[in-house]
Design a protein around this nucleic acid. Structure first.
Length: 498
RNA sequence: GGGGCGUUAGCUCAGUGGUAGAGCAUUCGGCUUUUAACCGACUGGUCGAAGGUUCAAAUCCUUCACGCCCCA
């Protein structure tokens, strides 16, 4: 007992009960089998009155965590919670085998219990199981949070997600919705004949995006590897290979700060479709979000943090230069591509300007600083400067911009898509420009990927692709303020155990 | 990186210099249709950590840790 002497009294009491269970037999049995879930029973017998239930003698076996225990002398009510919901059980001393009721009185809220009995309704109409047997299946040593106020401490909710999930239905609902969103997305893409693939997380070069990577080390090969920042270049290699509709839903890793919008690892869906351009992806994105909101929320009206957006109607479309004009009334649009004017304007906004910034980069700095946050309604912003789109195809009529869009809702970027650059010589030039940027101090610039150029030299059919940030989408559809609320196990600094 | 707020019993929270509190939970007793069950009694603390000021610190000061929010 010495190692437990520091434990609090509540745990010590429960541990003593577990010791007693061990002495009287198997304390962790695994031979109980349920045949019903709480939620199913409520649904199936929704319209059955008490009398009808008793006449039919419906015998069920249910199990779950005991979330409430109300003892009234020789009879009690408890609530068992399984993955589908809660069901009430009535235990009467004289209906249970000898000694069971006496044992039951020592069980604690939080214990895992299995029981069998017949369905009835109480005086207040609650569907209940009249137990004719009951067993303690797993002893819970730690007390659950208080029944009324529950668990509200953010840190504990994130660090001990298991407790959060036991206690907070709203939290369970967020993660069910997350699963439904991803399921919907898969079925949408599968219906359009896309093939799901998996590409490496560990890469020799971390390409496909402008971001700092995590590094790791392969011992046997004694080499540095990077965790991927995007799957893009590998997915396009597959387009070259002839799998001309592919997608991947998986984790990306970016070595950046942690905030309500950023987690070092996050989930991205990327899809590539040959013989299509970026406008096809704009249309598909619209259709997918329309269907997703109906399938997951049952409505196309999405309310996020007090704002309501209609996913049922066509989304707005504006160009980057439009956005600059709209949100900067004093901006002289005749000088939208005048480097000196752009530099001066950036400085006025307090934006740090580097010597190697071209007109496109300067435009995007202004757009990020003045436009993004105002894009509340779902909006496709198109015609991104080619300078900041190193993997995008140049626009045929205006090579200053590329055939690219980003999609914003509530001031946040949700998706990024473009017609892919499939000219290997142009791509090689873009990589060289990235390498120059890197040399000039931009540690988010891309490296030159020789193999990717080689792949393009075999010929990549005209293609368009999209990336959708799953976590941010889930935040929107679950009205969650923080990315941590939609990640089961968000990144946290290490906890101190003393 | 900067700023603000927070950390007190298992949980939710009071307590702004003078004997650490409440509700729920736990423990014990009572109760065969409860719904935050109820009634009675009891119990539970390194006040995030370390240092400082003071006759006296949960409370004031400093540093640190962790969390939340905002900004870069």
């Amino acid at each position: 007992m010495t190692e437990e002497k520091d434990e609090n009294k509540l745990i010590a009491e429960r541990r003593a009960k577990l010791d007693a269970l061990r002495e009287s037999g198997n304390a962790f049995p695994n031979d109980f089998r349920r045949n019903a879930l709480a939620g199913q029973l409520h649904q199936t017998f929704e319209s059955h009155e008490d009398e009808a239930l008793r006449d039919e003698h419906i015998k069920v076996a249910v199990s779950g965590r005991m979330m409430a225990k109300r003892v009234m002398g020789k009879a009690s009510f408890i609530k068992l919670q399984d993955r589908s919901g809660q069901i009430q059980i009535r235990l009467e001393r004289d209906r249970l085998p000898e000694g069971v009721y006496q044992s039951f009185k020592k069980w604690d809220v939080g214990d895992i219990v299995g029981t069998q009995g017949e369905l009835f309704r109480t005086q207040t109409g609650e569907l209940t199981v009249m137990a004719d047997s009951a067993r303690l299946l797993t002893k819970s040593l730690r007390p659950l949070p208080e029944k009324w106020h529950g668990l509200s401490d953010q840190e504990t909710r994130y660090r001990q997600r298991y407790v959060d999930l036991i206690i907070n239905e709203s939290s369970r609902e967020v993660f069910r919705t997350r699963s439904q969103i991803i399921t919907y997305m898969r079925s949408f893409l599968e219906a359009a004949d896309f093939m799901e693939v998996e590409t490496p997380m560990m890469q020799i070069l971390a390409g496909g995006a402008n971001a700092r990577p995590f590094t790791t080390h392969h011992n046997a090969l004694d080499m540095q590897l990077y965790l991927r920042i995007a799957p893009e270049l590998n997915l396009k290699r597959l387009i070259v290979g002839g799998f001309d509709r592919v997608y991947e839903i998986n984790r990306n890793f970016r070595n950046e700060g942690v905030s309500t919008q950023h987690n070092p690892e996050f989930t991205m869906m990327e899809a590539y479709r040959a013989y299509a351009d970026f406008t096809d992806w704009i249309d598909m994105t619209e259709a997918m979000l329309h269907g997703m909101s109906e399938a997951v929320l049952g409505t196309t009206l999405v309310t996020y943090q007090g704002e309501t957006f209609d996913f049922g109607k066509a989304f707005k479309r504006i160009t980057v230069e439009d956005a600059i004009r709209i949100y900067n009334p004093e901006f002289d649009m005749s000088k939208i591509r005048d480097r000196d004017y752009l530099v001066e304007y950036c400085k006025k906004l307090g934006i740090a300007v580097h010597d190697n910034y071209g007109e496109g980069k300067l435009q995007i700095e202004i757009f990020d600083a003045t436009g993004e946050e105002h894009l509340r309604e779902p909006t496709f912003v198109t015609h991104y400067p080619t300078e900041v789109s190193p993997l995008s195809r140049k626009n045929d009529d205006d090579p200053f911009v590329s055939d690219r869009f980003e999609f914003f809702i509530a001031g946040r970027e949700i998706a990024n898509g473009f017609s892919e650059l499939n000219d290997p010589e142009d791509q090689a030039e873009r990589f060289r420009a990235q390498v120059e940027n890197k040399a000039a101090g931009d540690d988010e610039a891309m490296a030159y990927d020789h193999d990717y150029i080689r792949a393009l030299e075999f010929g990549m059919p005209p293609t368009a692709g999209i990336g959708i940030g799953i976590d941010r989408l889930v935040m929107l559809l679950t009205d969650s303020a923080s990315i941590r609320d939609v990640l089961l196990f968000p990144h946290m600094r290490p906890e101190v155990f003393d």
